[in-house]
Design a protein around this nucleic acid. Structure first.
Lengths: 248, 248
DNA sequence: GGCTGACATATTGTCTGAGTTATCCTAGGG
DNA sequence: CCCTAGGATAACTCAGACAATATGTCAGCC
């Protein structure tokens, strides 16, 4: 059970040991293997089991605590927090959440939030965008058209389009919020690409959004973005009428 | 410069040493004393300056990194990230941001986001709320009426109302998002109470939202929430037509 | 002259083992 | 029955050493 031998889940960014452990534990928590209210076994035992030093293990726990997943206190131990305390929109937590086959309801909830935020963002962007924003968005769209979402550069252009749109809102909170979400979306985009090569061309949806923003028509921009996201949602393999969880 | 002698900023929750340091550094970052791109001085020097062990200092940096404020890498050092990478909606970051006199534009941006999210949430809640939700919201409103926002219990009732409303959306992301925001709101609520005793009675606004949700009228609920938030925004002392920052 | 690869170097990362402190629980006193 | 004092247990903090990792430099080669 040497953690060092495992393949790091998120490629590209070379995680250090504490990051790897945080990821492992984080996935265990968000996937439900550890349940809210449960106590993790003590530092000494855990670090020995993972064959790492207490230092590395502690820093991993510190990361999880910073993201609201756990709460560590002397004498009582490290407890898994209720889900309401988790920073679900933290990019890492989001990544961990959708690392495994994502929960159906959760995916729909994410699209729902994305619709709320990005549609409003499109409206604001239509009012506040600069010429530079417009130029950047146009370039992104050309990149999408040229490379398609089947390629890495194409997907990057898609992300650029959304990032620029959010930047145009000039609202730091909206920007902060959605750059995590878009990462998760790109994950699920790759996920849906895996099944079938995606017949529908996503470009027209984006173009409609772009044009509305160019015309400074907030209502139209918002409407176009809502349609874009709804279509994206329908493109995910498992978009069927998921049975909603009933509240307690 | 012994950090232990300082009064911890957030009362109630007993922070440990690393938490205290993280808070100090975090405030220094979000307030702009350290600027994006800057390098923090090395661990050894910093820990000595603060008269704490390297362990404690490192765990503090780990927390900041987990919230996206900094990025630490061997040989290069610990660098302040650009604001776009900060998890601005993290409860702690939000707390640190509004610890000092908050920036005007930022406060308006927060209200803007709150309007986007909570209005949509009200609409969703109108469709999905259970009888239990309705009951809890009614109780919260009674608490507000009885104790007013001048008292701690009254403010707690206000928070309960919003929390229950969000819970009724049944969307974990929306719930997660706004429990951080509500903390910031309560801060600014206290802030605005400080200046003048708040002449306007906030209860009617809340009642309109409640009734729309009770009637399962999404459009009306959304509209009522928009009005509630706009009125709250106007109640803050510094709500004047803040000059918007122009995008680069 | 510009490119390639090895190496020195600075900084964070990891390890170990000890001592400290906060919190819960139990027992004793009021 | 409530309140207070002590003990046990977990995380917390400390100190000092060594390892890993990027970065930049400099020699050698084309």
């Amino acid at each position: 059970m040497n953690v060092r031998s495992r393949t790091p889940g998120a490629p590209g960014k070379s995680l250090r040991l504490h990051g790897t452990i945080a990821r492992e534990l984080g996935i265990a928590i968000v996937s439900g293997r550890y349940k809210p209210g449960d106590l993790l076994v003590g530092e000494i035992a855990s670090s020995e089991k993972l064959e790492v030093s207490r230092t590395a293990y502690r820093e991993a726990v510190r990361i999880l605590a910073a993201k609201g997943l756990v709460d560590a206190r002397p004498k009582v131990g490290t407890r898994i927090n209720p889900q309401t305390k988790w920073n679900l929109l933290d990019p890492d937590v989001l990544d961990w959440t959708f690392d495994t086959e994502p929960d159906l309801n959760l995916l729909n909830s994410l699209f729902e939030l994305r619709n709320v935020v990005e549609s409003a963002a499109a409206g604001l962007a239509a009012q506040r965008r600069s010429a530079a924003h417009l130029k950047a968005m146009r370039a992104a769209l050309e990149g999408m058209a040229k490379h398609t979402l089947a390629t890495e550069v194409g997907r990057q252009a898609d992300l650029d389009f959304h990032a620029t749109l959010l930047d145009a809102t000039n609202n730091p909170f909206i920007i902060s919020l959605t750059n995590g979400v878009s990462a998760a979306i790109s994950t699920t985009t790759m996920f849906k690409q895996r099944k079938r090569p995606l017949r529908r061309d996503p470009l027209p949806d984006h173009l409609r959004v772009f044009e509305a923003i160019a015309e400074k028509d907030p209502g139209k921009a918002q409407q176009a973005m809502t349609e874009l996201i709804e279509l994206a949602r329908l493109d995910t393999p498992i978009s069927g009428s998921a049975s909603r969880r009933r509240a307690g």
